[in-house]
């Protein structure tokens, strides 16, 4: 009966065996487990199995990170730093010294003030509706007068100047030429 009880592996004992096999048991736990393993074959068997597994786990080879991964990270960090540096350079160039920041602020203030002043001095004249209609009517009358003048000029040119004076002289000239050529 007592032998059967000793041979039984209770969960608490198994936990101790595991701790001993993996090397993180207390001194007391190691003593108990090793004593029992020396007397009970089942305990010894379980202990050896767990020790074998623990040794295999601790012997597992670790993977090495490929160097290109680290290089790509370094390149990305450098790129981000350069971008930040450019922005900070501009920022510091403008605002690092009081005189520069004062000059920038003054320029901006002057520009704003100038815009306001310019807008006030340039007055856009405003006309009423009646004035606009009157102006349109006068424009129409003026165009009609000019049109009339051009029409009269055209008529005078066609009927009097070209017909009577220009063509008459041309005919006279042509007759003289005819008489010369035929008569002579």
């Amino acid at each position: 009966m007592q032998a059967n009880n000793l041979n039984k592996l209770n969960p608490e004992l198994i936990d101790k065996i595991i701790n001993v096999a993996y090397g993180d048991a207390s001194f007391f736990e190691r003593m108990i487990v090793n004593w029992k393993a020396s007397r009970i074959s089942e305990v010894r068997k379980v202990l050896e199995e767990y020790k074998a597994t623990a040794n295999s786990v601790h012997d597992v080879r670790k993977e090495e990170l490929p160097e290109y991964v680290v290089e790509s990270v370094r390149r990305r960090i450098e790129f981000e730093n350069e971008s930040e540096n450019l922005i900070s350079k501009i920022y510091f160039a403008l605002f690092s010294k009081p005189i520069f920041s004062a000059a920038v602020v003054s320029i901006i203030a002057l520009a704003i003030i100038s815009i306001f002043i310019f807008r006030q001095t340039v007055e856009i004249p405003k006309y009423s509706k009646a004035e606009i209609e009157l102006a349109q009517q006068q424009l129409g009358e003026s165009i009609a007068i000019v049109n009339k003048v051009f029409n009269k000029a055209e008529q005078k040119l066609d009927k009097e100047i070209l017909n009577k004076r220009v063509s008459k002289q041309l005919n006279k000239g042509l007759n003289l030429v005819n008489e010369y050529l035929i008569g002579g």
Binding site: K45, E48, E49, K51, A52, T53, S56, D59, R61
Partner: peptide, 11 residues
């Protein structure tokens, strides 16, 4: 049995 398990184990 521990030896059998051990022999068959690979990384």
């Amino acid at each position: 049995p521990a030896t059998v398990v051990n022999k068959k184990m690979t990384g």
